[in-house]
Amino acid sequence: MTSIKVRLNDELVFNPSQTLLEEKGFLVNVQSKMGIPLGSENNKQEITLQIHKKDISEDLPPALDIHQLEVGDKITIWGEWS
């Protein structure tokens, strides 16, 4: 059984099929950056949840869901990988 479920504040945002997982895998990132690119005047901290729907080693660009995050947000990732 192979299953991955990602919830953002109790909302289900990623629930791929077993076939997709077995064929493509998955990649879930939480990324924080500030003052990027260097020299930019944008010093607002940017926090995102990024979900790639296929293996990054395959077709580019991958299908990507991006959710902006803020203080108080909670992400839960359940996995069964056998």
Binding site: K24, G25, F26, L27, N29, S32, K33, N43, I77, W81
Partner: peptide, 24 residues
């Protein structure tokens, strides 16, 4: 975890079937 300005912080979870029995 946290990082200062002009840094990038990444929390990643990755699973692949490219290699058999490769874990998450």
């Amino acid at each position: 975890v946290a990082m200062a300005e002009q840094h990038v912080l990444t929390i990643s979870l990755h699973g692949s079937r490219a290699k058999k029995n490769k874990p998450v």
